[in-house]
């Protein structure tokens, strides 16, 4: 079966070991509540990570996703509070995300600014302007049940964020593995000149990558706002780093050319279960910052070694 590549089976194995270890250590690990909580917090990361996988595959990166997500929680809460309409809230969010994605993509392709710097700058701009938009957190005053359902509800006993993620997931698995666009993204990341000389419009697909990522941030941001029942300025701070660390851990290359959605999912589950384990084992929560830092460095280090061996 080609579906699980060797790298993914290693991740799967690590994941299984973690689960077995934790369930022995603390049987609570397998409680429905705990599993729901792991899956719920994984879903928001996964949704954004689908876009980040595409971007990294095409050799780009977006550091502004965390700041954008915080901004989205504020916008969606505010607009629904004012208008009383979820539809209007969503339109505002996705319109805004579309705009930010376009700007990121155009600064990258037209001004030719390294995407790391371009999106870092966008991160600063969003972080500042969200406070300009509103200094205080925005609380849910509309109390529309459907809105709370998005993040907190269940469908067939599955948390809604997971349902949303599962609806989006197949689209990206198919996109990356079975359509020509998936091939284009990896060709652009692996050898941009060869891609261009094969008649691919590299810049167009790069812009599309940035836009898709921003729109997915919109989805995750709405879920987060519903979960917290607030729109908060710093609610997704540091989110970009967790997403990137997970995608790289999943086997997508920082140098472009290779991306896997399944690997990304496994990477996120591993990080989230470690997070969960840290709580279950009563290890200080601060390790939730330290562990992804260490894992990020190691994952890229091993990626480098893997590349050297395959050359």
């Amino acid at each position: 079966m080609k579906f699980l590549q060797s790298n993914e089976s290693i991740l799967f194995f690590i994941l299984a070991l973690l689960c077995i270890f934790l369930s022995f250590y603390n049987p609570q690990f397998y409680s429905i509540q705990n599993i729901h909580s792991i899956l719920r917090s994984s879903s928001t990361v996964m949704i954004v990570a689908f876009g980040m996988t595409i971007l990294l595959t095409s050799g780009e990166v977006d550091l502004s996703v965390g700041a954008l997500m915080s901004f989205v929680t504020v916008i969606v809460m505010d607009v629904i509070n004012i208008s009383g309409s979820i539809a209007l809230g969503l339109i505002a969010v996705f319109g805004f995300c579309l705009l930010i994605g376009l700007i990121n993509g155009l600064v990258r392709t037209v001004l030719n600014v390294n995407s790391l710097i371009a999106t870092l700058a966008m991160m600063l701009i969003l972080q500042g302007s969200v406070y300009v938009y509103s200094m205080a957190a925005i609380y849910n005053t509309h109390l529309i049940p459907l809105f709370s359902f998005i993040g907190q509800g269940f469908f067939l006993n599955i948390p809604m964020p997971v349902v949303i993620m599962l609806i989006i997931l197949p689209f990206f698995v198919v996109l990356l593995n079975f359509t020509r666009y998936g091939r284009y993204f990896s060709a652009i990341g692996s050898n941009p000149d060869a891609a261009k000389l094969s008649g691919i419009n590299n810049n167009r697909y790069k812009v599309i990558g940035f836009v898709i990522t921003s729109l997915l941030v919109g989805v995750s941001g709405v879920i987060l706002a519903s979960l917290m029942d607030t729109g908060q300025q710093g609610s997704a701070k540091g989110f970009e780093l967790i997403v990137i660390a997970a995608v790289l851990l999943g086997g997508t290359s920082f140098m472009g050319g290779r991306g896997t959605i399944i690997g990304t999912i496994l990477g996120i589950l591993i990080l989230k279960i470690i997070d969960n384990g840290i709580i279950l084992m009563r290890i200080p929560q601060e390790f939730q910052l330290i562990v992804p830092g260490v894992i990020l460095i190691l994952a890229v280090y091993f990626d480098g070694i893997r590349r050297k061996n395959s050359d």
């Binding site: 030719n112 600014v113 966008m122 600063l124 300009v132």
Partner: peptide, 18 residues
């Protein structure tokens, strides 16, 4: 608003690097 500083910094980076 001091938060404008962040916005100003971000815009300045894009302009300077671009």
């Amino acid at each position: 608003d001091t938060q404008w500083q962040l916005v100003v910094n971000g815009v300045i980076i894009i302009i300077a690097v671009g």
